[in-house]
């Protein structure tokens, strides 16, 4: 007997007799396409957005925290000290401030400055940019001076020098004091002299901040420094409110030209 020959697949017959199966296959294919093309990408995207939300929320919290700190900072007592700290440690070479404070201290203590020498170096550049030659965060300005007065006055001068703005330290000292022959102690009333080198400091550190960077927090040590600064005296630069004229002489001496209040010299006036 011959074996039954395998019948070729008849699509029409299949669709006619097994319609439900064909539809089911179609539905399965559609499910797979839906899963791969829609569900999985959407779920992936949702997870990514969720991660981004967590990260951005954290950033938003930091920004809000910083804004809240900035809003409240002006009410803190330390904020009132900002100008004083700037005067104590200026951001520029405090040449004028140093000379002004030196003058104020000599007036207060009663010493006489017989000699002073300062080499400020570069004070200004064509671009007005500071050229940092210091230790990074700060630089210093040296002043050599010789003062004379009684021992008490010299002591007072040295004490005051280190308690006025800008921040100054006596880095070298040579004192010629007179001893009292009877008591073997320093004669407080006799004239003495001293040569000093003072070092005045100023701030040179470049600072950069980002929007998300929190405000710096003041530590206990910073509070101690602020308390120390309370004993300092701020020396302000005197403000010039009037123009100091050199007189009203007519320096041009042009004929037929008269400046109000000008004094005309008796010499021959040149004509135009």
């Amino acid at each position: 007997m011959n074996k039954k020959a395998k019948q070729p697949f008849n699509l029409q017959l299949f669709l006619h007799t097994r319609r439900s199966l064909a539809i089911a296959i179609g539905l399965v294919l559609a499910s797979v396409i839906l899963l791969v093309a829609v569900c999985i990408p959407q779920i992936k995207a949702s997870l990514e957005v969720n991660t981004t939300i967590a990260k951005e929320n954290e950033r938003l919290t930091k920004l809000k925290q910083k804004f809240s700190e900035l809003s409240n900072i002006t009410y803190q007592p330390e904020y009132e000290q900002i100008d004083f700290v700037s005067a104590t440690l200026p951001s520029h070479k405090p040449l004028l401030e140093l000379i002004t404070s030196l003058y104020a201290v000599t007036q207060k203590s009663g010493v006489v400055v017989s000699n002073f020498e300062i080499s400020p170096g570069l004070v200004s550049t064509s671009s007005a940019e500071y050229v940092n030659t210091g230790k990074g965060a700060y630089d210093s300005l040296e002043l050599k001076l010789s003062v004379g007065g009684t021992y008490d006055q010299l002591q007072q001068f040295m004490l005051l020098t280190e308690t006025v703005t800008p921040f100054t330290t006596i880095s070298e000292l040579s004192l010629n004091a007179t001893f009292d022959n009877e008591s073997a102690t320093v004669d407080q009333s006799k004239a003495s002299s001293a040569s000093l080198v003072t070092t005045t400091f100023f701030f040179t550190q470049p600072i950069s901040v980002s929007l998300e960077q929190p405000l710096p927090k003041l530590t206990t040590t910073d509070q101690i420094v602020l308390n120390e600064l309370a004993s300092f005296e701020k020396i302000d630069l005197p403000e010039q409110n009037t123009i100091l004229g050199g007189g009203s002489e007519d320096i041009f001496r042009v004929a037929k030209l008269r400046f109000p209040g000008a004094q005309v010299s008796s010499e021959t006036v040149s004509e135009l």
Partner: peptide, 25 residues
């Protein structure tokens, strides 16, 4: 925050100056 930039600038410089003054003191 950008609108408060001058306050942030002055306060940040103030804090850094205090650190320097700590060393100097």
């Amino acid at each position: 925050i950008l609108a408060e930039q001058p306050i942030e600038e002055s306060y940040t410089i103030f804090a850094h100056k205090l650190r320097v003054l700590t060393d100097l003191f």
